[in-house]
């Protein structure tokens, strides 16, 4: 690579630049990313992909096995399963992204600040985490619903606000051991502000476990959404999500197995791809892992 012609912006982000290049070389991660993009796009473009509506019933048809008209078959109300999987994906993917995003943002910041500043600040911040931990999360979410009213976005945020706790604890532990290291002291002696030290020296070095935990959080929140919806706190029929489709499929597993298989395979495919991508990201950001 020519060194003479890199400009400052590139230099400033070289960790991420290098990570991008390394990620491109990781076939499994790229495969995961492609699958996620294809599924995501399909959900987004659902109205153009299937001729049916997700609430469109055909009681005369009933539950039918996969056929040329209905690729994934129909459920007992005669609704096209492919359509419902695509529309349900919208809900599941959104909840996965928003809730995990909230958990990441709040958890990493909270944990990094508590761990880095330490002392009384740390004690207070982590006791808050403990208190929220101690609240049964169902009550917590119901409370949020009651106070702020019911909306899908709020539901997603509420799930995120439950999931950030573990993230904060993981990050705090990482930061506590990182801040003992001499390179952080060197940064202090150089006159960097606390925020710059956290952003440039601490977080990039704590990111490995964060990514791994994130890939575990996404399926978690998808299932949490299904659970809440099942209790009537989440989305309402005829709308659906992958979690709801799967739980409905379980009930009729013996008579109509396709109602379980297709949503299940879709969710599994997404989770596998997420794991591949997560592992790839972690390796790409670990400059020591690959020598090239």
């Amino acid at each position: 690579m020519a060194i003479s012609n890199f400009d400052e912006t590139e230099v400033g982000q070289s960790l991420w630049q290098d990570a991008k290049q390394r990620l491109r070389k990781n076939k499994l991660a790229i495969f995961g990313l492609t699958v996620l993009l294809v599924i995501g796009l399909a959900c987004l473009l659902a109205p153009w992909i299937t001729p049916y509506g997700y609430e469109e019933q055909n009681l005369g048809l009933g539950a039918t096995a996969p056929s040329w008209q209905h690729w994934m078959g129909t459920d007992n109300l005669g609704r096209d399963l492919l359509t419902r999987v695509l529309y349900g994906g919208r809900v599941s993917i959104t909840v996965g992204l928003i809730a995990t995003g909230v958990a990441l943002l709040v958890g990493v910041t909270w944990g990094a600040i508590a761990g880095y500043i330490g002392g009384r600040t740390d004690a207070i911040m982590m006791r808050i985490v403990d208190i929220i931990y101690a609240l049964p999360f169902m009550i917590f979410i119901v409370l949020l619903m009651v106070i702020f009213g019911r909306s899908l976005l709020l539901l997603f945020l509420a799930i995120g606000l439950v999931e950030w706790l573990t993230m904060a604890r993981i990050v705090r532990g990482q930061v506590q051991s990182l801040k003992q290291l001499e390179f952080v002291e060197a940064a202090r002696s150089m006159g960097l502000s606390q925020w710059t030290i956290i952003r440039r020296h601490i977080i990039p070095n704590a990111i490995g476990p964060v990514i791994v935990y994130t890939t575990l959080t996404i399926p978690n929140v998808m299932l949490l959404e299904a659970f809440l919806s099942f209790l009537g706190l989440g989305i309402q029929a005829p709308q659906s999500s992958w979690g709801l489709l799967i739980s409905a499929g379980v009930e009729t597993m013996e008579e109509y197995p396709w109602l379980l298989i297709f949503p299940g395979v879709t969710l599994s495919l997404v989770l596998f791809s997420l794991n591949f991508l997560g592992d790839g990201l972690r390796d790409a950001l670990d400059v020591r892992a690959s020598k090239d």
Partner: peptide, 24 residues
């Protein structure tokens, strides 16, 4: 300024030479 004892611990493992020297 300060020079530290252990060059394995005093450099941020995720910053390349250029960024490390450019920071100050």
């Amino acid at each position: 300024q300060m020079i530290f004892q252990d060059p394995y611990a005093s450099l941020n493992p995720r910053m390349n030479v250029f960024d490390t020297l450019a920071e100050p």
